[in-house]
Design a protein around this nucleic acid. Structure first.
Lengths: 239, 239
DNA sequence: CGGAATTTTGACCAGTTGGAAAAATGTTAG
DNA sequence: CTAACATTTTTCCAACTGGTCAAAATTCCG
């Protein structure tokens, strides 16, 4: 299993109730907060890791601080010393997640050829589903709830990125290198098919059964998806 | 908006604290429970509808009886008169959901030709995503949590159905009517791409923007998916 | 109508939840 | 070492949670 993954992004609000100078500083936007101590960084990471575990399964409302604290191996008040409230933990997770989430699509290169580009985009997304299923589920959970906590990021950052890449694809279509179709729905279908292996993992495993449900399923999925996106399901004379 | 959808399946445990004869009957498996009154049927439906609304957004743990009762327009104790506990409501929803869920795949006809069959399967699933997004999200929520409450149904009923249809597809492939590929992942990709429009609706709408995010998105999706599953993304000489 | 059965309400309860306060215990720079 | 700071624990709280119970209100049916 890969390391914690969701890294600490953001300037990070310092722990509450620091000494008076800092408390004052908090009200004074020009003073930069004292840098985090080693313990602060470590503990925050432990907490975020635990929170990822819990939020990704139960969603925001369904997760409890107690639960997260237990997974993190500390007491609830101790956890609340590092993150003054539940929302704060979730916010941090989502902010880090979004970055991770956009990265693979960002890498799609307008100067490359469509099929290698799309193929490796699919591979990267599939690898993320395999290596970071909890992140995928956290994201899915937020979506199911109507994305109340990240809707602006979706509407701005994500939309801009997709708009940009859609244009790239339209360019490829104009050059005759890619079938003329709807680039937005094309991107949706890549998201859907790849994230499915993280979000619906139980189902995938149950349906494939014990023999085919092992780690090999990701390779099978990769092969299948490559064929789907390349040629669809129309039989072709082999050669 | 379509009608309540998730219909009342299952023999339905009668309300608690009925008169003594019935209370006795409950312990005596041979006596059939008194049939439901009109009010019981109506109120149960109202409750299930409200529960669908709430569970589909917040998941099992995140949803509260109070919340459901409020949406249902009744007091919590009143609701608990019809469903003695939270799990009971959820169980009923899931049981009805599973039936609805399997239906479209069941309709896939081994004697038909693959492309019409697959095409109309995709259409039906897409229509379900459009008309019953809450059911889709309820299902997705359960999956994200590891399907604790329906895992056996997935492992038995769903698996059997998929196994059966996978064989049908293999038959088509043997006849050369369908590209030789993995039928299980093929089915997964249909589920993923269609349900995406219900489960990730916010994202889809946000990315498409106000102009393209209207109801027309389902038609666009249908067109795109048809092309994807038929020919993939390889450009073809038009004719 | 009138009595029996059903439905609804209001008061209540024990356990959980997110969080605050402060005391107790480290840790570290001078 | 010790004062200043950082961390942890203990105690506590009000709001919320799932659920009970008896009494009141309503509906049903002969």
């Amino acid at each position: 299993m890969p390391p914690t993954k969701v890294k600490s992004a953001e300037p990070t609000a310092a722990p509450k109730r620091q000494h008076k100078a800092d408390a004052k500083a908090a009200t004074h936007p020009h003073v930069k907060p004292r840098p985090l101590t080693r313990i602060q960084r470590e503990k925050q990471d432990v907490i975020l890791e635990a929170a990822l575990e819990v939020f990704s399964v139960h969603g925001f409302r369904g997760a409890t601080i107690d639960q997260i604290a237990e997974v993190a191996g500390m007491s609830k008040p101790n956890l609340l010393y590092y993150f003054p409230r539940k929302e704060e933990i979730h916010r941090r997770l989502m902010a880090a997640l979004l970055e991770t989430w956009l990265a693979p699509l960002q890498e799609m290169d307008a100067d490359g050829d469509p099929f290698p580009e799309i193929r490796s985009y699919i591979r990267r997304k599939l690898e993320m589903a395999r290596d970071f299923p909890r992140e995928s589920r956290l994201f899915a959970n937020e979506m199911l709830q109507g994305a109340p906590r990240i809707i602006e990021m979706i509407e701005v950052d994500l939309k801009n990125l997709v708009d940009e890449k859609a244009k790239v694809m339209l360019g490829w279509m104009d050059e005759g290198k890619l079938a003329r179709t709807d680039p937005y729905h094309l991107i949706f279908s890549i998201w859907a098919t790849t994230q499915h292996y993280a979000d619906f993992d139980v189902q995938v495993r149950a349906v494939l059964g014990p023999d085919r449900g092992g780690e090999g399923r990701f390779e099978d999925a990769a092969r299948y998806l490559e064929q789907l996106f390349l040629h669809g399901l129309t039989p072709r004379p082999k050669g």
